[in-house]
Nucleic acid binder design. Structure first.
Lengths: 67, 67
DNA sequence: TAGCCATGTAAAGGTACCTTCACATTGATG
DNA sequence: CATCAATGTGAAGGTACCTTTACATGGCTA
């Protein structure tokens, strides 16, 4: 499942450590999500979307809509 | 994490089996989500929202916004 | 009453998510 | 060159998600 986390983070000039701290998760979780190793849980997806002031659908691409 | 799955399903007159088949998951998964035993994965949350033609935020309540 | 449908609990197995620790690579700066 | 920040991989442990199977309950109906 694709996501825009890496570019959203970059837009704000945040490091992975910065983002992990804001989300209150480990840096490994940030890496795993950014690199597509796995999807976040739904609660974490909410937290991510709220951090960037976006809808979940604006951060993550629905599996049914991936090219 | 709260959700409106049970009432959305009831509005359409679907049984848990009906819903499980439409979502292509087991009935146990439907029960677990409806009864709040656990949250769906993000891909399943997308599928649920799309089935009801709603945004994820309209089906599930953000943990940060629960009473 | 007997049978069916809908809902629910329980348990066990597999995979996904999240953690911590360790180590490697790259690029910028002293 | 030495060091530090940032990013990444790998492994191991715990919990969450999803599955299948089995069984229990309540409501409806023949």
């Amino acid at each position: 499942m694709k996501n825009r986390l890496k570019s959203l983070r970059a837009e704000r000039g945040w490091s992975q450590v910065d983002l992990a701290e804001r989300l209150e998760v480990s840096r490994q979780s940030v890496i795993a999500i950014e690199t597509g190793r796995y999807d976040p849980s739904l609660p974490l997806a909410f937290k991510i979307a709220e951090l960037f002031d976006l809808a979940i659908e604006e951060v993550f691409t629905s599996p049914s809509k991936e090219s």
